[in-house]
Amino acid sequence: MTEHIEAGAYTFAYLDEQTKRMIRRAILKGIAVPGYQVPFASREMPMPYGWGTGGVQVTAACLVPEDRLKVIDQGADDTTNAVSIRRFFQRTAGVATTEATTEATVIQTRHRIPETPLKAGQILVYQVPIPEPLRFLEPRETETRKMHELEEYGLMHVKLYEDIARHGQIATSYAYPVKVEGRYVMDPSPIPRFDNPKLSGNPAIQLFGAGREQRIYALPPWTEVVSLDFDDHPFQTSKAPHDCDLCGAQDSYLDEVITDDQGGRMFVCSDTDFCEGRRAKGHAGRLGGDQKSSKTFANSFEGIWPGTEGAR
């Protein structure tokens, strides 16, 4: 009764075969009905709900030993939770990992789509906190399920229109709702709306996993994904009106870093691999002359941590 799993004795990719079959069936149904949230019997993973358990289960069900896995959180490979998830799969699936978007075959992400365009053969797995795009308008699952069934999305348009009435524009900056192949309204996970255009016509397979909410959904390659808008207020992307201070990119999504208490700040690419790649090619931004890396900002624990030599 009290026999424990020996370290290293996990089955490939941690989950038992029956669980993987259940997840795989859900993924295929998700692929067959793009944008529809398929219920699945999410398992209790050895990491907290809300920290990527859905994405981890989807990734576990898709991985093969030959994969090269990339894990990003906020666009960065080095944020603590990305590190933790990458380690989990190194340990339980023994797969190779990479930070290079172009080399990865499976990319698990939280809150970003990489800047480097994806290609056929790649799978992008999103961690999703609240998969239901209508949830904040109607908290009841029983009601929102009916709305999807009846394609009754008026409530969402009313919400967006109220934004316009109040602010003069649609005031949704992330998790911006989309309509998939003209049928299901879908939550693209809390990516900035800057990333929304990359959802559509993407050559890669995009899979979405919400563990706590027990839902999986999918976008097959080349699926048409339209961000909701109005004729007189068309969808617009947005980002901070700056260039990357490290690599000079004008077209990448930026993190803001506060550099002093006098209002000093700099803007750096949120996609650390993209930024590094540009700098390696000789591009430089306003502050790109020094040796600072965008990864320095991906995880700032380095600065405050007392170090291994004297933990206390």
């Binding site: 709900y49 939770n81 970003r112 005031a171 809390p190 990516i191 900035p192 800057f194 706590r212 803001e256």
Partner: peptide
């Protein structure tokens, strides 16, 4: 409580990207 505590505590994870989107807006 396992679902609740996980989701509650996940808000301490980085949200630089979505916060930046809100900030910019």
């Amino acid at each position: 409580n396992i679902q609740a505590t996980g989701f509650l505590e996940h808000i301490k994870l980085p949200h630089y990207v979505d916060f930046q989107a809100e900030l910019e807006l």
